[in-house]
């Protein structure tokens, strides 16, 4: 249904095929162009008001000063010089990148296997769609509740510890299960694997089955087919999924706070702490730096796989 279509659209390079104008358009060219502008106007206005202007505001405010009581319009580099010289910054970024890398590897591995099973092993279309929807439903439920739902499982007296204790594998409850890097990465994988499954599944469904038969006829083993045929053809899907997962993890603050129990930090969490202390200019400088890093990472991923070439 829709989600796979939507992401598939990006996979193929995004823009719908522009077609030559219809006869009606030929008769009223200016009218048709005018209609286009009217039709996109609401989208353009909303994005301008709530995306472009807010980001520009962040950039401007990142040069302001602040004290305990207020923020003061100015043009100073204090926020950036603090950000760039603070020893904390590097640690925050390294920690956040660690989460992103772990979440990426795990979601990619799991997502690829799940998508591969759905696309190549489930033969009836009805079953394929049913299982696919089964995988996507959690996407439409609350992330916070999905995180909370790990408490009874991972907690000090949770199911996992109870099981380990009764099996005699440990002699006292493991403390690192909840409120740790482990819990944070687990939650990321739990929340975001979907973003890998959907685009990769979509890429796989587009693969011409004749290619696989040809590979098998030419003597390829199942593993070789996956490695040399399926994987390269899934690159656009993998790229889309990776962009989703990496940007979501890089900007996250809520998962790190809830699953880290205040013991762990990330760039987003540091920023949200500054916001709650009303240190807006400092948070704005952080935001600009984070945006730059995220955009660089996205650009790198787009470079590895030329998404536009897939049109």
């Amino acid at each position: 249904m829709s989600p796979d279509g939507a992401v598939g659209e990006v996979a193929r390079g995004g823009l719908p095929r522009g077609r030559p104008a219809s006869p009606a358009a030929a008769r009223f060219p200016r009218l048709r162009a005018g209609a286009s502008y009217l039709q996109v106007a609401p989208l353009a206005v909303i994005l301008a008001l709530f995306l472009v202007i807010p980001i520009l505001t962040i950039v401007v405010v990142s040069f302001w000063r602040f004290d305990e009581y207020r923020i003061i319009p100015d043009v100073v580099l204090d926020n950036y010089s603090y950000l760039l010289t603070s020893a904390v910054t590097l640690g925050l970024y390294l920690n956040t990148l660690k989460y992103a890398a772990l979440a990426w590897v795990l979601t990619l591995g799991i997502g690829f296997a799940v998508a591969y099973f759905l696309a190549f092993h489930v033969r009836s279309t009805t079953w394929q769609m049913t299982l696919f929807v089964l995988c996507t439903i959690p996407f439409w439920t609350s992330n916070i509740i999905r995180m909370i739902s790990w408490i009874p499982f991972l907690g000090r007296h949770g199911l996992l510890n109870q099981a380990l204790l009764s099996l005699g594998l440990v002699d006292r409850p493991l403390e690192f299960l909840l409120f740790s890097d482990f819990a944070i990465v687990l939650a990321f994988v739990h929340l975001y694997t979907l973003f890998m499954v959907v685009p990769i599944f979509n890429s796989m469904m587009r693969i011409d089955r004749a290619l696989i038969e040809a590979a098998v006829d030419a003597g390829a083993t199942a593993r070789q087919v996956v490695w040399h045929v399926v994987l390269p053809l899934c690159k656009p899907g993998i790229a889309i999924g990776s962009i989703f997962v990496v940007t979501l993890v890089m900007g996250d603050f809520i998962t790190v706070r809830l699953m880290g129990g205040g013991q762990r930090a990330s760039v987003g969490l540091a920023m949200s702490n500054e916001i709650s202390l009303l240190q807006y200019p400092a948070a704005a400088a952080d935001a600009v730096a984070l945006l730059a890093v995220v955009l660089l990472m996205v650009a790198a991923m787009m470079r590895i796989v030329d998404v536009r070439k897939e049109l």
């Binding site: 286009s36 994005l47 980001i55 962009i243 603050f253 916001i275 935001a287 945006l291």
Partner: peptide, 30 residues
């Protein structure tokens, strides 16, 4: 509208995609 070509279509498309990948906390902060 996007079914027809119009000036700025590519830009607006990328802006929409940007809306998806800009970290949520930035939108809230801005």
């Amino acid at each position: 509208a996007f079914r027809r070509r119009f000036r700025g279509a590519t830009f607006l498309f990328y802006l929409t995609v940007a809306s998806l990948i800009v970290p949520s906390i930035l939108i809230g902060l801005g």
